[in-house]
Design a protein around this nucleic acid. Structure first.
Lengths: 221, 221
DNA sequence: ATTGTTAATTAGGTTGGGCTAATTTAGTAT
DNA sequence: ATACTAAATTAGCCCAACCTAATTAACAAT
């Protein structure tokens, strides 16, 4: 039960399986291939290796699952990534749309020491700039409020943005311009066929459905 | 003449050639093999590739030299490394002996943005915690005072430590305990067969020659 | 000139992570 | 049941960066 030291690819596979599991109830080879930007045979091959290492379970033609230890590793990588994103934003003046790419490379090479240092410095935050939960040092996911995509709200109520479900730089840029960022509140006005009409900071916008579904909110009580 | 994007190995080769050239007047395949911890045939192979890319020149059985562009890349990596070392020490509370290893991994993955951000934050420093010069953003080495190894001083004069020529963690630990770090002054007492007797902060030590030759100093005028 | 030593190179193999093209499997629709 | 489609797998190849074992080159000493 010692630490086998994984390659960056392997870490990426585990991380991606974890993230896909949060959304889909099953993770296919294709999903992985798409997300990791490789061809399906490469996925088959790598999954085989990860199986042999007892990091994933794989019923052919059914889907992939992380084992306990596989999940631990995924959470470690995720913790690195999200701590880094917050750190880059807070301490190195990165803008919202720049943090992901840099964190993507750094997450694999920082040491436990580095992780602990920035976590400490930032007071052990629970969420990154996108609103994504940061696993704790013990690799538990923190409790997250119950969120729904903005485009699913029907009634006129106020909501608070909890999480932005994209890493697309242009969309992130747009949203930050509009102050549609985690923590901010939206006075919900109207949901019609064109999109969601919202009010933020006294400014009123139309948010198209394609974008609204990336903005997950909780109702304000 | 576009940017070919080098692998980490390739960057390491270029960096190591540069560092060896600062010390030896010629760089052999063996030197490289030793420093990079690979076997000589691997070096031959890699040097061939770097030659083909016009990053090094190689006269078989004579030695390796960096081309202009090869040197630029080496200096970029060196700049990353040394900025990172200082950054880790200053902002993330790393101790002297921990910074090298971490910087060694990070140097290959940080972006220009990251480099600029930490350089800015630290006020564009010229030397890292070991006293090694940090190449400027334009990739020029800053002027460095004229230094000599501590064990070469014969007369009783005061000196200031300029640079520590090792990355050995135990030695670095020892030296930092004794306050034998760049910037500090040594009241030079006596150079005898056992080593150099020095006074630092009212404490008097014997520094063995093996260690004294790693401590490069300038005379105080 | 011959020999011995050390440095460097060549030949050939391994491993990791990709790839394409061809094949098999599962699931759907007729 | 049959045929079709889409997903997954297999077979076989490539490339980077390493390795060991065997060979060649340079050079000093006799």
């Amino acid at each position: 039960m010692e630490k086998p030291r994984l390659s960056e690819s392997q870490e990426d596979y585990l991380k991606e399986i974890f993230k896909l599991r949060e959304v889909n109830e099953t993770v296919s080879m294709q999903d992985l291939a798409r997300k990791l930007d490789v061809r399906p045979p490469s996925v088959t091959g790598m999954i085989k290796k990860l199986c042999a290492m007892d990091l994933v379970e794989h019923e052919p033609y059914k889907g992939v699952l992380l084992t306990k230890t596989g999940e631990k590793i995924a959470l470690e990588v995720l913790r690195h990534h999200r701590l880094l994103e917050l750190y880059l934003a807070r301490h190195l003046n990165y803008s919202w749309d720049e943090i992901h790419e840099e964190a993507e490379r750094l997450e694999h090479v920082i040491s436990e020491k580095f992780e602990a240092a920035i976590a400490d410095l930032m007071g052990h935050p629970t969420h990154d700039p996108h609103g994504d939960p940061i696993p704790t040092a013990e690799l538990e996911l923190p409790d997250t409020p119950n969120l729904m995509p903005l485009n699913t709200f029907k009634k006129r109520i106020g909501v608070t943005i909890g999480r932005i479900m994209t890493q697309d730089r242009d969309i992130l840029n747009l949203l930050s311009r509009l102050e549609l960022i985690p923590g901010n509140s939206i006075a919900f006005i109207k949901n019609d066929s064109a999109g969601i009409r919202v009010k933020v900071d006294d400014n009123q916008y139309l948010v198209p459905h394609t974008i609204a579904r990336l903005i997950w909110c909780e109702t304000v009580d």
